[in-house]
Computed example of a mutant assay.
Amino acid sequence: MLKIQKIPQQRSFNAWFIAGTVFSLLFLAYTALDATKVLDRQTLEIARALLLRPITRVDCMFYEWRHLGEVPVSLIITGILGGLCILAGFRRRVVLFLILLLLIGVGVEAAGKRVLSLPFPRTLRSGMTVLECPQLTDAPFSAHLTAATAQWSKIPDPPRVQVSWAHDVSQMPIVLDDSETERSFPGGHATRWAFLGIVECWLCWRLIRSRVLRAILIPVFFLGSFLGGFMQYWIGVH
């Protein structure tokens, strides 16, 4: 059985509770600001600017890795983390607590996307499709697995025609007359990546005795909690 790092329960709880409260308040503040629509134009400008970035095989890797933020996969990972908690001596109800937190996030995502929307020009959307690794759209599972395992040399290059079109679209003005409704906020994939990363940080903090190992793993998992959101942004799906 894993040995739990001896940390005062109340102090540990207070620190994580304060951190969770701060992040929740920041999320609520941004949501309130987004609901006013004052950020719509800036959001579209950022989306258009993405078309100027290098379009490479990395996009395919990110597109495959984002699936780790899907609800079924996140539930499995949460169950595994809960199992580690039980092996480490935590009460069994911690598994239900973690799953409940995950499902609350799913509920918030679903409710938010029903209320919040963004007018997204169809021309801009057509240019951004090249960011989502279109070269693997009809590819066999083995090709997707190649991208997911970061086998760089085996990933096909982005279609030149679509890359050229994306660059053309990046120079066009943003016209809202021909727009579709985009419902991408709040981002569920990014939220679940962040949730799992924070749980992993917490487990490292509680279970690992070595200060050196903790100093390495906690920053890695903490940065990983933001990776999901960055990937969603980079491939233009949020």
Rank of each mutant, 00 (worst) to 15 (best):
E180K: 15
W65C: 01
I235T: 01
R91E: 06
K6A: 00
T43V: 11
V58G: 05
F185W: 13
S153W: 13
V73D: 12
L44D: 00
T181Y: 06
L101S: 12
V22D: 02
E45N: 13
I104A: 15
G187E: 15
Q9A: 06
A110R: 13
L196W: 01
V22W: 10
L100M: 12
L26V: 05
L196H: 02
F62D: 06
Q151D: 12
I18G: 00
V108A: 06
G20N: 10
A150N: 08
M231G: 00
R192E: 14
A147H: 03
I155L: 15
R53L: 10
Y30Q: 02
Q151F: 13
R160A: 15
W165D: 03
M231V: 01
L51F: 01
D177N: 15
R192Q: 12
V94P: 09
M61V: 11
L26W: 06
W234H: 09
L52D: 01
S153F: 12
T21N: 05
T43C: 10
A139C: 11
R125N: 13
P134L: 11
A215L: 09
G228Y: 04
G107Y: 10
M1H: 00
A111E: 10
V95R: 12
I99E: 08
G236I: 01
R214Q: 13
A32T: 07
L39Y: 00
A49I: 02
I76Y: 10
H167T: 03
Q151G: 07
W16T: 04
A190V: 04
A147N: 03
V175G: 12
A29Q: 04
Q171W: 12
H189S: 14
P158N: 02
D157V: 13
V161Y: 05
V38L: 10
I80K: 09
A190R: 07
G197S: 15
L207A: 03
E182C: 15
S179Y: 12
D34V: 11
D168G: 02
L33H: 07
